[in-house]
Design a protein around this nucleic acid. Structure first.
Lengths: 342, 342
DNA sequence: GGCATCTGTTTAAGCGCTTCGACACTTCGA
DNA sequence: TCGAAGTGTCGAAGCGCTTAAACAGATGCC
């Protein structure tokens, strides 16, 4: 293994000089700097991570705590995880993957062992058990999601309320009067998952403002469940012409079922999906969709932790910031003007 | 921060004794052990990861290198990543997430810095650039995938050849004579992605053995692409009654298109999907599918690295093992006896 | 010319842990 | 009864790095 001492010897300087060249924390003459740099190159030197963490009391690692549960649309999580990793690397950080099943103890472990300098917590609940631990340890963290009490924490999330509102607006603008919101399975609402409740609230409020009659039905995302849900909707409100689907699994079945029941999209019924653009493009007709950027979410989360880290490092108090990313509505082929009532 | 010295003081022993209690590397009397353990509990001691890595020359971290690319079915990757993380924790290891875009340099960095003790590399190509680096550094690694030269490495993968063969067998058993294989987009084959080529080869060989007439067509996974692909297949071979789909995006469109063209599944046409069971269950009819377990893949990969790590640690030479996991065919509602020729 | 100041570099003291060798004491076998 | 072997604990060295403090030499100022 190549150590800093090897580099120092090779460049004819002391090891502290090498350290200063690499960290830039002290002025070093250009000549020395170049000698050191080329020694580093030639020897293929990489500082030993553990030694660095021990001496500098910073590991240059952030932990990403991901849910183990899979009732949420999983591809998005991977996209976020990758976005976080890429963004972190740009700050010289690596990402440690922790699963949710470790719970509060996981957060404790990471903080107490100095394994990570900061934590990004996904799938945050309103009254998350991990939050008190985070506060107690003074672990620098960013939450993806909005807990009830955000003091001392940074948060970032999609603006689900806005997403819901956009759906209502779009349908209202097209002249629809009776609309239905096909949500996640009932378990998700019983758990009070914030993203589900907030989307629904945003939709509901805007729908009321715009004078829409609307229905919310939960749906497990299988074909049968979707069939049942749709049947109930059409039984209760036969005049429904606008559909918003949040459960990705229900999209395909819904389109098939509408077609089967003799409704053409978008002539007879309009469908808006709350899902990734990539998915929305796969269907026929291509779906009008409201989408939040997973990339952006990951990037912002990393930036928030970094900001907190540098603040603490400079002896300051980190600012608690909180960012809501506005999702975008992309109009495609699945929405159109409401049909004239028969 | 609580250090080992604090624990030692609290328990009235030396810090080396604490270390031995925790690692179990030397015999310690039961009484002392208990005193130390309770001190650890009371103080909430967690060893400093960096210090430990420095002294023991093991970080207790394994790196997982995931592809940045997204033309592969992404949910599976997240499932694997989580399975790896959970399995690693059971061995006292944490998982560091690295993206493919760092390429060989990423592997070099991880190895040289002692950040991770071992690496699991996903999405391995036949002639992967990272392999020589791995060998050169003597980094302990497991590859997910089968490169051409596996000397000095452990590998694990789904047995795609078997998966393809199972599809052919199942269709042949049901009496189908003309079958079509709807694969990934042409880019995947141009890249010589092993999973795609091996599945196809397995299918092709078995289909020939069983005397099936077959066609392979690539497909991008959009509705249009699937429509085009199906149209070509039916134009070339109107008597085709068996379909195998590997591209997850093409499944929904294919079912819709078959229905639209007046073919009922499974009475007029049988469909087998190569995808996750969860996805297969979402369609109507539920799909007969050949599925490899992502969980299992992750678990085996971790076990392989662990085995190598302990071997090296005990001064031995790690054995190169290579495991192919046989996927399972689950018969559901989308396959049935071939229709009698009109 | 002498003193303060600035620049660039080195020296040395740890960071918190593991582990080798030493040591004290007990037990066993001949 | 004595030496050998085993058991349980400790002391101290050292892992590779950072960083405060010291230092040497050049520069500027009065």
């Amino acid at each position: 293994m190549v150590t800093i001492a090897d580099v120092a010897r090779h460049a004819g300087v002391s090891s502290s000089t090498v350290s200063y060249v690499l960290s830039g924390k002290r002025a070093i003459s250009e000549e020395t700097r170049n000698r050191v740099r080329s020694a580093v190159q030639q020897l293929g030197y990489h500082p030993h991570a553990g030694a660095r963490a021990l001496a500098a009391r910073r590991s240059h690692i952030i932990a990403l705590m991901v849910p183990l549960r899979t009732d949420v649309y999983v591809p998005v999580m991977m996209e976020i995880a990758i976005a976080v990793t890429v963004a972190a690397r740009q700050h010289g950080y690596d990402v440690l993957l922790i699963t949710n099943d470790e719970g509060p103890d996981g957060v404790r472990r990471i903080g107490a062992s100095g394994l990570a300098d900061g934590v990004i917590v996904m799938d945050v609940e309103m009254d998350d058990e991990r939050i008190p631990v985070l506060r107690g340890q003074g672990t620098q963290a960013t939450l993806m999601g909005l807990p009830s009490d955000t003091r001392g924490l940074s948060c970032v999330d999609h603006d689900f309320v806005a997403a819901g509102a956009q759906c209502a607006d779009h349908l209202a603008d097209l002249g629809h009067r009776e609309v239905a919101f096909i949500g996640y399975g009932s378990g998700v609402y019983h758990r009070h998952a914030a993203y589900a409740e907030r989307t629904l609230a945003g939709f509901r409020d805007r729908a009321e403002q715009r004078g829409l009659r609307f229905l919310h039905r939960s749906c497990e995302g299988t074909y049968e469940s979707t069939a049942g849900t749709l049947a109930r909707i059409l039984a209760d409100r036969p005049a429904t012409t606008g559909f918003v689907v949040q459960n990705e699994g229900a999209i395909g079945p819904l389109l098939t079922l509408l077609r089967t029941s003799g409704r053409t999209v978008p002539e007879d019924a309009s469908v808006i999906a709350l899902c990734q653009d990539q998915l929305a493009e796969q269907f026929a007709p291509r779906l009008t969709a409201v989408t939040g950027s997973a990339q952006e979410l990951g990037r912002v989360a990393v930036e928030q932790v970094m900001r907190r880290l540098t603040a603490v490092n400079d002896g300051g108090r980190p600012v608690d910031d909180m960012v809501l990313l506005t999702p975008a509505l992309t109009v495609r082929e699945s929405t159109g003007p409401a049909p004239r009532p028969a």
